[in-house]
């Protein structure tokens, strides 16, 4: 009995070690950022959103892209708390900086890099990810291969910068070296019954893939300057669906 307890303790310890080797910090590791994602955070290893890693967001259309931008802006608000700046790299930018203010960021602290050539895009993303002084790097990339994503992964492993790859309407979705793959769609907002107008931005957040974690789907909304989890429809994706996508 005692041996069994020791064994399970040992396994837990080893698992933690493996996670930290893979770049996931444990909760006790310095001060952890509170993203306020609620139950969604349980999907990640150690129950904490992995910073210092590259996340992939897929948007099939413009409406989804706008939702993803909103969600990313909410995440950036937390990441940029310590007065660091953020770089937003894109080729055909439609971001309207005043619209980001709602998500708790000062839009003047975001540096936009608008490129003309796809060729320069990945180079710039890699250079930016290597820069430790940045809080986060958002890159609107259409296509990226496994090899290219490996380079980005290696860059963040050293610099601990959080990278978000926003892939809008990609031609093909293949495995790339990212800790997670997200898909965010807008869903109808809810208001008090009988009230006119449009409510808080509300999204269906799908975590299609997460390294060492559990994929799933949640509903979140952005209200009063923070994420709010909407428990009603939350469910873990059936395992068959996960297999298919990841």
């Amino acid at each position: 009995m005692k041996q069994a307890v020791e064994k399970s303790e040992l396994i837990a310890k080893l698992q933690k070690e493996i996670l930290s080797l893979q770049g996931f910090r444990t909760a006790s590791d310095d001060k952890r950022l509170q993203f306020g994602l609620g139950p969604l955070e349980n999907a990640f290893p150690n129950h904490v959103f992995p910073t210092g890693a590259v996340h992939e967001f897929i948007s099939p259309g413009t409406a989804e892209a706008a939702a993803t931008t909103g969600f990313l802006a909410g995440m950036l608000g937390t990441l940029m708390q310590d007065k660091k700046s953020c770089v937003w790299i894109s080729t055909h930018r439609t971001i309207f900086p005043p619209g980001l203010k709602v998500f708790g960021i000062e839009p003047d602290r975001i540096i936009f890099i608008d490129l003309n050539k796809e060729k320069d895009l990945l180079w710039t993303v890699e250079e930016a990810l290597k820069c430790e002084a940045l809080a986060a790097v958002v890159a609107e990339v259409k296509e990226i291969s496994l090899t290219e994503s490996r380079r980005l992964q290696l860059a963040v492993e050293r610099s601990r910068v959080t990278g978000f790859l926003h892939r809008c309407n990609p031609n093909k979705i293949e495995n790339i070296a990212c800790v997670s793959r997200w898909q965010i769609r807008p869903i109808s907002s809810e208001l008090e019954p009988g009230m006119p107008g449009v409510g808080h931005p509300r999204w269906d957040v799908q975590l299609l893939k997460v390294r060492n974690g559990t994929a799933g789907s949640w509903q979140l909304q952005w209200a009063d300057g923070r994420f709010e989890h909407i428990p009603v429809l939350s469910k873990i994706l059936p395992s068959a669906y996960i297999k298919k996508t990841g």
Partner: peptide
């Protein structure tokens, strides 16, 4: 930055 009126995150 003005906050009183809703502004979209993405503008054509």
């Amino acid at each position: 930055w003005p906050e009183d009126q809703p502004r979209p995150v993405s503008l054509l």
